[in-house]
């Protein structure tokens, strides 16, 4: 069976009902999509199929035949990252990185279809993606920045709409413990 991933056509041997996630990771060694829950619950395996975000763990290989599959690897190159990839770096939107490729793929589809920078709209679009690390704050910031059209070099890291910080303190000596 032929499978087109990131504009490259591959001849694959897996059985037609094998999950697309397994084919990508195990047969083609394209490991951007992560195997989180493998039951459709977390979003870590998200890829684009003809530009639409889809859970590759729930997609049979035969359903992707004749269609364009895009993984996070196909969105930009290390030399020329996509706007969403740049924004994720700029806003520190990844910690462990496990959710990140799914988040970036889904966010790319969101901004490509003209999604708004409104927090509620982004939350709805990415609502099916779990992140264990970030509390979603900086992911929301990154996606909003791209949706607003912020320039990658001048993207603000101004106050987030969902989490704010003030800092107090100085140079004393507290908190003890053995040196």
């Amino acid at each position: 069976m032929d499978l087109v991933v990131n504009a490259v056509s591959h001849e694959v041997d897996s059985a037609p009902l094998t999950s697309l996630l397994e084919v990508l990771r195990e047969e083609l060694d394209i490991t951007g999509p992560k195997a989180g829950c493998e039951t459709g619950g977390c979003g870590a395996c998200t890829v684009l199929i003809d530009g639409e975000p889809r859970r590759s763990c729930l997609t049979a290989l035969c359903m992707a035949e004749g269609r364009e599959v895009t993984t996070v690897e196909g969105l930009g190159t290390p030399e020329a990252l996509s706007a969403v990839q740049q924004a994720f770096i700029h806003h520190y939107a990844a910690q462990c990185g496990f959710c990140t490729s799914g988040m970036i793929v889904a966010s790319s589809a969101y901004v490509d279809r003209g999604g708004s920078p409104d927090t509620g709209a982004i939350q709805e679009a990415l609502g099916g993606h779990y992140c264990r690390c970030t509390g979603y704050v900086k992911i929301l910031d990154a996606v909003a920045a791209v949706a607003r059209g912020d320039d990658a070099d001048t993207m603000s890291t101004a106050a987030s709409p969902t989490s704010s910080y003030v800092s107090i303190g100085g140079t004393g000596n507290g908190g003890g413990g053995a040196a």
Partner: peptide
């Protein structure tokens, strides 16, 4: 991601020895 509370944080820099 949805239905998260607003979070307001105060950071206190109280250096350890």
């Amino acid at each position: 991601m949805e239905g998260l509370p607003a979070v307001e944080n105060v950071l206190i820099e109280n250096p350890s020895t």
